[in-house]
Amino acid sequence: MLEVRDLEHGYGRRNVLAVDTFTIQTGTVTAVVGPNGSGKSTLLRVLAFLETPRAGILRLDGAPIRTPAERRRARRRVTLVEQTPYLFAGTVQENMAYALSLHGIRRTEGTGRARQALERVLASDLAQRRADQLSNGEAQRVAIARALALEPAVLLLDEPASAADRATSTRLYQVLDEERSRGAAVCFASHQLEDAYRWSDHLVALADGRTGLVTPENLFRTVLPDGGGSKTARVGPLDIRVVTDRVGPVTLAIPADEVLVSNTPLQSSARNEFSGRVVRISEHDRDRVTIIVDVGVDLAARITPSALKELDIQVGATVVLAVKALAVRVF
């Protein structure tokens, strides 16, 4: 449905995105997870044809979208709801009507569509309210309804439930589920890993503007104790040493490329060493193999095929994984 290849994007001298390939399929929900500043919002704006990437090809239904006219046409089928959405001056109803008028939908049909869309996100009672008097959560729901009313082929949402309470958040994700059933290609960005796992068919992890650097397998929710610098985080049965000033609930990411694999315990600087059984070996390409090791939780390590051969690693074998405390990312 919507696909990017060899995407590169940035602002000034700063590179924000470098994504080899990323696809949102029709009738599926894709979640993009990653810490703040990982490029999620930028990726969504590029996918929504609001920013022209420095390099790379976007395809909608297989057709490359290159010229301004093609981008303009594509925008009529792809809609983005930003994390802090903008509502135009006037009432909620007027916002809905404006969006529908841009799609040339007649008032008689539009009114019904607007009402339905607001109902779906539990915002019926907001229709007559002035947009600038809504709370953040209400504004977010109205913006989602405004996008739903357009029945886009591709629906993109940036942290759609960031200002919602638990019950509303569940409702919003159910709506995305309904959109998938309708046949839309849905993609949302979230830093809430549980939401992403629960509501998506595909999960893509983004870190420093790149996909696949952090595998979703190596993301762990935990609560960090008070104090700065080096500390210990509890993840399932594991104690993971990390270096951060963050406290409270966080997500830890262990880049699979930075996990050392050996047959015997190592004499090394790595503060984290876990022993476990290999449960899966998957070969990505000629240069990379990912092995999943059960060390109490599943931990992925990416190594070269030659290393795999040399260490004679097979499913069921016991290996030792080592990770430097500094390699553990916290977000």
Binding site: R76, T79, E82, L102, L150
Partner: peptide, 25 residues
């Protein structure tokens, strides 16, 4: 706010109508 133009565009506005939205704001 740069979101004015972006929002108009993502809702399907032509560049001219997006400019009008900015002018209106």
């Amino acid at each position: 706010d740069p979101r004015v133009r972006r929002t108009a565009l993502t809702l399907g506005a032509t560049p001219l109508r997006a400019h009008l939205a900015v002018a209106s704001a």
